[in-house]
Design a protein around this nucleic acid. Structure first.
Lengths: 332, 332
DNA sequence: CTGTTAGCGCTTTCAG
DNA sequence: CTGAAAGCGCTAACAG
């Protein structure tokens, strides 16, 4: 049986109140302080955060709801979010939605029952109703990366449309006319990147036939199947924009398998820089997101809401991106 | 304010005990059941797991202590562990050690204070003393992937030595004599793979000069620096074994930068298959670990300990691996 | 099957 | 600065 505050009361002869005060950083006579510290050491006492949480109604735990914990993108975000949270003494209760909206909705209720102080979410769903129970329970919520189409929550992300629009110039300025896109269409980022792509094409006076628009899920399979399809078209595109990490992975796999070479046969532009892409020859042009800043800003915002320091209406923070240059684009 | 059991007592006129019984799946008169369910719906009641945990002394939460949450290996394990845990109604409180033993030790105490029912750990440290507080607190512990050198805990892993020994035959049987290794030396897996490598070389009557033995941390940098060094030796190795995912990544990056080609200039054998390695040309021979099985077995074992069903001494479960063939090894 | 009561380990008034 | 006592929301005997 782990030691409780009562054990250290017996050991020191002090009252519960005094010990509790010490535990919470209050002022205690130096002699009592010494006694308490000795007892804590001797009994291997560790505060029971469950009991503490019951009375303070705070758990110093933040719920993290991720669309898929397997994604490297998620791993990086989690790393930065976790570090920022720990710095403030908070822990993370992570739940994996496995890219499934039903699981996601259940996970929200789970987090509520666990009395987390706040929730950070990288959502699967594109509408916000699954978060209603948390909102009603008064739990602050901050989204990362993907915002929701109906309700506005605090959100820290990049400007997907603008970033894509800007990156597309690399292909367009090198005289590519037949440019295809492989994008996810279910979530926010995929749609916004699609919009940025279409805008860039329209502004350049370029047409995008439907067979050049592959829109499916955020997955390696989408990239793989999409590229495979594109490479079998009688009129192959000369350039392809791939809207995220998984899709880029799948698309390159398919390109290799189909025996095409980049940039000789097809020029490529990707999203979500990951170190290993530097391994590939040629190096792919990629839009890089500020992972650390996103994680930190999200935590900062959430803790502000939890403490009540931040009270204004929901905000959307759009951070800047950086284009990682490569040699995956040929000049026509 | 969220509704409590008292609110639904008022609403239904039933006693706390009856409601509690219903909540825990006990038998209640159909009419009362209806009343309670209606009240729950109306008041948006969700059980307060904190309060429940205080009395039952169970949180139905498992602490997960990972060496680095950024690692793709970790992401995959977490995915499978999380799924298995959820199936049994458990959640995960994940803490990231950031490859730092000091943080790791603190994290153990954190998990204890959070009263997790059990702990799954992918350790940074190679000795087990950092887990002593949890052990003393009577919290069941299961290691995944890496076992510890001093104390024996339950551990689910692969046979690193044997897997490596077996895989090395691919290089040796193709007449490679000058084979180098880049391995992490700090943790269990790296050391075991090193041992398997050395054994295979010794049994083949091959010498491994010290300059062919690069041993450092489990990181991309190690692979990168290691390969860079190997490629500048006057007497370059013809084959290189890379002991894990990060090292493989770094090593290939360096090889590309140094202008060498695989398998023409150097033959490669790696560890930790990841889908994206299929992208690379040539495809790398790699030892693949049974991620799903490892996660599931670990959860099974831990829940068995928690429930008291499993009581025997700590066990080490070594699962089998599979060699993913490629074309990264040239016949000399 | 239902109700009463005690108490999990801690914080928090409120006196002293 | 310290102590006594109440109570956070729930479960677990024990009676009825």
């Amino acid at each position: 049986m782990p030691a409780t505050i009562v054990d250290i009361k017996k050991k020191t002869g002090l009252s519960l109140a005094t010990i509790s005060k010490y535990l919470n950083g209050g002022n205690v006579l130096p002699e009592n302080k010494v006694k308490i510290e000795a007892a804590i050491k001797e009994l291997h006492y560790e505060v029971n955060e469950i009991a503490r949480g019951l009375v303070t109604n705070k758990t110093r735990t933040v719920g993290i709801l991720v669309f898929s914990i397997e994604s490297p993108f998620t791993g990086m975000i989690l790393h930065h979010v976790g570090a920022a949270l720990r710095k403030s003494g908070y822990g993370m209760l992570i739940v994996d939605s496995c890219d499934d909206e039903a699981i996601e909705a259940k996970n929200v209720k789970y987090l509520i029952s666990k009395k987390v102080d706040g929730i950070i979410v990288l959502p699967v769903a594109s509408k916000g109703d699954f978060l209603a129970p948390a909102k009603n329970a008064g739990i602050p919520i901050v989204l990362i990366d993907r915002s929701l189409s109906d309700i506005q929550y605090d959100c820290v992300r990049i400007d997907n449309r603008k970033s894509t629009y800007h990156a597309m110039k690399e292909l367009i300025s090198r005289n590519h006319k037949k440019i295809a896109i492989i994008a996810s269409e279910r979530e926010y980022t995929g749609r916004e990147r699609y919009n940025g792509f279409m805008e860039a094409m329209r502004d350049a006076g370029l047409d995008v036939p439907v067979e050049y628009q592959v829109r499916a899920t955020h997955s390696i399979a989408t990239g793989y199947n999409g590229m495979k399809k594109l490479m079998t078209l009688k009129d192959r595109p000369t350039g392809v924009f791939m809207s995220n990490y998984e899709i880029t992975l799948g698309a390159m796999l398919a390109m290799n398998e189909a025996g095409f070479k980049c940039p000789d046969d097809v020029s490529l532009l990707g999203f979500d820089d990951q170190l290993f892409f530097h391994l590939l020859q040629p190096q792919i042009y990629m839009v890089e997101q500020p992972m650390k800043a996103m994680g930190e800003r999200a935590v900062e915002l959430l803790l502000g809401r939890i403490s009540g320091v931040v009270v204004e209406d929901p905000v959307e923070i759009a951070l800047g991106t950086r284009l990682q240059k490569g040699n995956s684009i040929r000049t026509l």
